[in-house]
Design a protein around this nucleic acid. Sequence first.
DNA 1: CGGCCTTAATTTTTT
DNA 2: ATTAAGGCCG
Length: 809
Amino acid sequence: MRGRFLQCRMFPELQAADSPLLQHLNPEQRAAVTLPNEHALILAGAGSGKTRVLTTRIAWLLSTGQVSPGGVMAVTFTNKAAKEMMTRLSAMLPVNVRGMWIGTFHGLCNRFLRAHYKLANLPQSFQILDTQDQLSAIKRLMKQHNVDEERFPAKETQWFIAGCKEDGLRPGDVEVRSEEDRRKVEIYQLYEEQCQREGVVDFGELMLRSYELMRDNGPIREHYQRRFRHILIDEFQDTNRLQYAWIKMFAGDPTGTSGSSNAVFAVGDDDQSIYAFRGARVGNMADFVREFQVAHQIKLEQNYRSYSNILDSANALISHNRTRLGKNLRTDQGPGEPVRVYEAPTDLAEAQWMVEELRHLVRGEGTSEGIPRHEIAILYRSNAQSRVIETALFNAAVPYRVYGGLRFFERAEIKHALAYLRLLENPQDDTSFLRVVNFPPRGIGARSVEQLQDAARAARCSLHDAVSATTGKAGANLGAFVAKIDVLREQTQNLSLREIIDLVLQHSGLVEHYKTEREGADRIENLEELVNAAESFVTQEGFGRDAVALPVDELRQSPASQGLDANLPQLNEPAPDYVPPDAETGETLSPLAAFLTHAALESGDNQAQAGQDAVQLMTVHSAKGLEFDCVFVSGLEEGLFPSERSMSDYEGLEEERRLMYVAITRARKRLYLSYSQTRLLHGQTRYNIKSRFFDELPEHALKWLTPKNQNFGGSAFGFGSGYPSTRHAGGGLPRDLAPGHFASPPVPAQKAAPSHGLRSGMQVFHAKFGEGTVLMLEGSGDDARAQINFPRHGIKWLALSVAKLTPVA
DNA sequence: CGGCCTTAATTTTTT
DNA sequence: ATTAAGGCCG
C-alpha cells in the first residue's frame, strides 16, 4: 500500500490506468486528459465530449498532484460555460472551485484588475460599460466635440475603437493613412480620456489593460507566470488577437526554453468558428501550434450525440470548406432516421408545416414515444425569421420560447435603476448621470444638460461636480437632483444591498413613474426582480466570486485554495513566494460595487416565458453548444442562409458553411431542413431559391418530403411542375397533413407569382451575358428586377422592363 | 420641455 | 413591415 502510494506520487502518470476519472473516456479523450505538462491543441468536434475532456483534465492534474488549485487557470467565453465547468469539476473532486481561476476572459480580467487596481491606474470600484453604455458615451463625446455624425457614425466609431483594442492598439499605435483615420484616432483618444476621467472601462479595456499590466510590470508578470502552471482555454477558435496575446503573456516563454513556460491546453474546433465578424481569429489555432511549438495535437472525432445520417450530412457539407485543419466525425450509433427536407411555397406555409410536424412529434406519432417540447429546436439564420414562426406557433397554441433579445440587466428600467446605483458608488460616472438626470422627467431638458456639459468641460470635472456652478431655474432642478443622489448615498451608507436597492427604487421615482405608464406593470415587476437578483447574489453565490478582488497572497494561503481532500497528494511545485505589492489583504469591494460588476459582466438570462415545456426558437449562432433530440433548420435559401452579405467573398461563405455545420450537428435524433420559395422580407416578397448547401449534402442521408425541385423540369415557366404540394411525397412518415390546417390555399406562391413569369432558380438567356440562373426577384411591374448569376459575367441585377430575358427550357 | 412625426436601417452576439 | 432614433412643433 504504502509503496504504491509513494510510487504514484513520484510518477503520477502511473495512476492513469485505474483512476476513476478516466474510466468512461475513449482512447483519444484519455490521451488528451493525461497529456504531459506541455502545450497541447485538442481539436474537439461537435458532440465529442469537449467540456468533459477539459474538466477531467483539470481534475486529473489536481488529483495526481501535478498542480494545486491555485496553479490552474481555465478560460471560457461565456459565464454559462464557466459555471458548467465549475459544477462538473466539483462533482469530480472535492475541490473548492471558487478559489480557482475559472471564468470568462472578461471575468478573469476583472478579477485581475480589481486586485491590482492601483497599478492598473483605476479606481478600486471602477465600473464596466456594456455595449449600450459605450455607444452612448461615444455619442455624447462626439456631440461635445462637434464631430460630424454623418461622416463618422457613432456605431462605426464604436466598432473602430473596439477593433483597435482587440488588436491591442492604443490611439498612439494606430497607423494613420488618411485625414479620416486621424480624426477617428482623435476620437478614440478623447474617448479614452473620458473613460479614465470617469473611472469606467469597456469590455475591450478589461482585456487590454490586463494585458498591458502583465506586459509592462515585470514583478506582476513573473508572479502570475510562476503561479499558473496550467492554462486551459475553451473554444479557442473564438479567441481574438488580444485574447491570444493575453494568453501568451500568462503562459510565459512559449517555447519553454527558459523553463518558465506553463502548459497551455487549448481546446477548439475550427469548423465551428462562427464569430469572425466580432474579431475571432481561427488563425490563432495555427499560430498557437507554430509559436508554442505544440507537440501534442489530438483530434476528438468520436461523436456521442447524433446518428450517422446527421453526421454524414455534417461531414459532407463541411468538406466543401478549403481552409480547415481537417476532421471527420464518426459515431457508433446506426444511421438513424434520414434527414428530412421540405420545400414550402411561402414562409408562412413553412412555419405552419413545422408547427404541424412538431405537434405530431410531441404527441409521439411516427416515433416510439413523444418528444418533450423543450427537446425540439427551431433554428434560423436571422432573428427576423422568428416572427412568422412565432405567429404559426401562437395560432396553434404551441408553447414556445424565443432566445435572444434583451437580457435582464439590459432592460431599460433595470439600466435606469443601475444608473442610480452606479452614481451612489461613483458620482463621476457621467454616462449614468445622463441616463437618469431627467428620468423620471423632472424638468431638466436638453438645454440645461448641454449647459452643464459645457461647464463640466470648462472645469474639467464630472457633470455631478459641475452642478454647483450652475445657476438659474435649471440649476435649481439640477441641484435638487444631485442633492437627492448625495442624500441617498449618505442614507445607504450602512445598509445591506437589498435595503440600498429598495431605498433607491423608492426615492428615484422610477416605480411611481412606471405606475403611470401604460405598460409599466412589467417594468415594475422587473424592478422588483432586481431586488431578488441582488438578494440571491449576496446569499447564494456568495457575492463576489468574480467581482471581489481576491488578494493573491490570501488566495494562496487560504484553506479554500488548498481545498483538496487531504487524501490527495501535495503539489509538486513550491508556492510562489512573491506577493504583488498592491494586492493588500482584506481590501474588498463593497457589496454594491460587486453587484454592479456582476450586472455588467453577466447580463442575465435572455429567455422569456420560462417554466413551461416549450419549443425552443433561436438563431443558429445562439444554438452553438446546445443539443436537441429534434432540430428544424428553416429558411435555407440563397441570400438568407448563406446570407446575402457573406456570399460575395469566399471567407464569408466558408463561415456560413460552418454555421450550417453547427446547425446540423445540434440534432441528436431527427433533423429537418426546410426552405421557402417566397418570403416576406422588409415588407417585400422575395423569391428565393434553395440554399446551395443542399447540393453539398449526401443524397443517401436525405429524404425529400416534397418533390425535389430540380431547377424546374417542366414547362419553361415552371408553374405546377416544380411546385411543391403541401402534401408530403412519400412513404410512411410523416402522415398527411390535414388540408384544413393551412390557412392559405395549397399553392399560394402561384398567386404571388409575378407577371414576368420568372422564378428564382430558373435558367434564362440574355443576349449579351448568355445563359444564367435567376437568383432573386424583386418588385413588380416596371420596377421588377432580377438578380442573375451569369457564369461568365458574374452576378448582375437587371431591370426586367429593360433587359430581354428568355427562359431556357 | 415633451409629444408627434419623419426618416432610415434591417446577419450573426458575448462580455 | 417594423422599429428605433432624431428632428420639429405646440
